[in-house]
């Protein structure tokens, strides 16, 4: 058990410095965590070709929180899947540090996902036959430097209902869902429309959890949404449209999640 106070101590003021806005994400001083060059993705369904991505260039810096904003079908999820090693690009390349993600085989990609990436999916995507705690443990079992599952859960929400099954307990779902992503202490946290299926109240709770993780663990976080309001909580906002990055802007100040209303 790692009480919250202990966690705070452990990570020290450094992590909590995030509250006075980041100083780490300064380009130039560090190497980007993820780089993408001219990424393209074509889906083929029968005779129809769908160009989901048409050449995306992108760099993500350590400790940065980036929101990918765009309407449905703009290619956000595709980009996220490629960055997370869930899908492969048709053209271009993507680098995680020194790893060329676009040319790695299934085994290397699996290791990449296992060791470096945390996912928060649009739908809960929890395994219904496991409790909240077990859903988290499923990830920590194979991680190289995992957190204790209970601690990960408490980091996100109230430390109760750990042993409830997700489908029957909304609270358990809400906490298990993001904490499963961070329990392995990933280098990158990728969130695919975490609020998509939720009402705004619950959505805010989830966003708060993500914000807290980002703040406390300093994980590079990418969050995709079509909800422009959410973009306010990011350091940087990339607007996607028609498979390309249409616009990139930097928020002078991040708004805390609890202030978001939609």
């Amino acid at each position: 058990m790692l009480p919250r106070a202990a966690a705070s101590k452990l990570f020290g003021g450094f992590l909590f410095a995030g509250e006075v806005h980041t100083v780490m994400s300064t380009p130039g001083t560090q190497r980007p965590v993820l780089r993408a060059r001219d990424l393209g993705k074509v889906y083929r369904t029968g005779e129809v070709e769908v160009h989901a991505l048409r050449g995306v260039d992108l760099e993500l810096w350590p400790g940065e929180m980036v929101v990918l904003l765009g309407p449905s079908g703009s290619g956000k999820s595709t980009l996220l899947n490629i960055l997370g090693g869930l899908d492969s690009a048709s053209t271009g390349e993507a680098w995680f540090g020194d790893h060329d993600l676009t040319h790695e085989d299934d085994r290397d990609l699996t290791r990449y996902r296992r060791e470096h990436v945390g996912f928060v999916f649009q739908f809960y995507n929890l395994i219904s036959s496991l409790t909240a705690l077990e859903n988290v443990a499923l990830v920590t079992e194979i991680a190289t430097r995992p957190m204790e599952p209970g601690a990960a859960l408490r980091l996100v929400g109230p430390g109760e209902r750990l042993h409830h099954f997700p489908p029957s307990c909304r609270v358990a779902s809400n906490s298990a869902w993001p904490s499963r992503a961070i329990a392995k202490q990933p280098d990158i946290l990728l969130c695919d429309e975490p609020t998509g299926a939720l009402d705004s109240q619950t959505g805010v709770l989830v966003l708060e959890a993500i914000e807290r993780i980002h703040r406390e663990l300093g994980t590079t976080t990418v969050l995709i949404t079509h909800n422009a309001v959410i973009a306010d909580m990011a350091d940087r906002v990339l607007v996607l449209g028609d498979g390309r990055i249409q616009q990139e802007r930097r928020n002078p100040q991040r708004r805390p999640a609890r202030e978001l209303v939609w």
Binding site: L86, D106, R107, T110, R113, R114, V117, L138, I142
Partner: peptide
């Protein structure tokens, strides 16, 4: 199938 995909997403090998 979806669960298999999910497990793969978490980094479980084939």
């Amino acid at each position: 199938r979806p669960e298999i995909g999910l497990l793969k997403a978490f980094g479980y090998g084939n």
